[in-house]
Write a protein that binds this DNA or RNA. Structure first.
Lengths: 158, 158
DNA sequence: TTAGAATAGTTGTGATAGCAACCAATATAG
DNA sequence: CTATATTGGTTGCTATCACAACTATTCTAA
């Protein structure tokens, strides 16, 4: 039984210091900056680009695998794929050993775009990390991964 | 003139190690977990809760100030406010010295909800940070803030 | 075998986000 | 003053997301 009324927390929440909030606006800012570039230079949304990135790494993946990889609802992946297919950046063929499944891959054009986007992405990441020393990079890396792992185990009891 | 073809970056992007992506899924996971609680226990969306949090800290703030604080489009704030007003969690009155402006504040009911949500939020934050030592907390804090500051200065050329 | 569960993918619906256009009140510059 | 710009806020439109229902195929177990 916790003594809520005499608890250890302040009675007012300082949003600017609240970790979930800070991570959210940090992520929004960082994604937002590069989203603009993807949109202006390649006419790709973040989701579309992520799909292409997975297919660049794992040609032949299925929509379901892509969905799991990038942690985006399969319905959203499905609709984003429709656009990529329409633009002939991605192609698919029914897997003959399992006809529910469709193997996805970048088309030639898709691959050309991919090869242009990859260095832009890396350069952006590099610019971001300029504000950290080598050691800080490693630390940050480690802490992010640890937090991510840990968050998965949290279940807010009611 | 950069030698792109012999550049220092790999020609394939490993999405799982790409910082913007990792921050995005980390933030989604962390916000997602608590969003569920806000929704189930208080019937509040993240945005609605953030608005209430600002009003808890700064009673009398205007919609514009709230919008700036939580970095959310004023149109979205406007619509979220309509719901909070309808539920009588927030009230507003026209500022008589500037009749464009409406001063917002939590109602009595709103304040009761607020007082329930605050400790839940702090407890969640505490659980999250369990995976860090005191020292790591401070480091993480510092690095996040630095990265956030730095990201603002980045302008992707062309 | 074959009925039922599981899996891959699509589609419908409602909520939310982002942008721009807009209205009303106020501030400002000639 | 008064025309113009600025500011606070709402609304319309479109895109995107989340969740659930649905179709089609394959797997499983009696």
């Amino acid at each position: 039984m916790s003594k809520r009324s005499t608890g250890k927390h302040p009675s007012i929440l300082t949003l600017e210091r609240f970790l979930p909030y800070r991570l959210s606006i940090l992520s929004n800012r960082i994604s937002g900056i590069i989203a603009e570039t993807y949109r202006d230079k390649f006419a790709l949304s973040i989701t579309e680009w992520r799909i292409m990135a997975v297919l660049g790494e794992y040609p032949g993946a299925s929509a379901d695998e892509v969905s799991a990889k990038i942690q985006i609802e399969k319905s959203i992946v499905s609709r984003a794929l429709q656009k990529l297919l329409a633009r002939h950046l991605v192609e698919r063929e029914v897997d003959e050993t399992d006809r529910r499944r469709q193997n996805l891959s970048l088309t030639k054009t898709g691959m050309e775009i991919y090869k242009q986007v990859v260095p832009v992405s890396y350069e952006y990441e590099e610019q971001l990390l300029e504000c950290f020393s080598q050691k800080e990079c490693e630390t940050f890396d480690k802490l992010i991964d640890r937090l991510y792992q840990h968050a998965e185990t949290i279940d807010l009891k009611d």
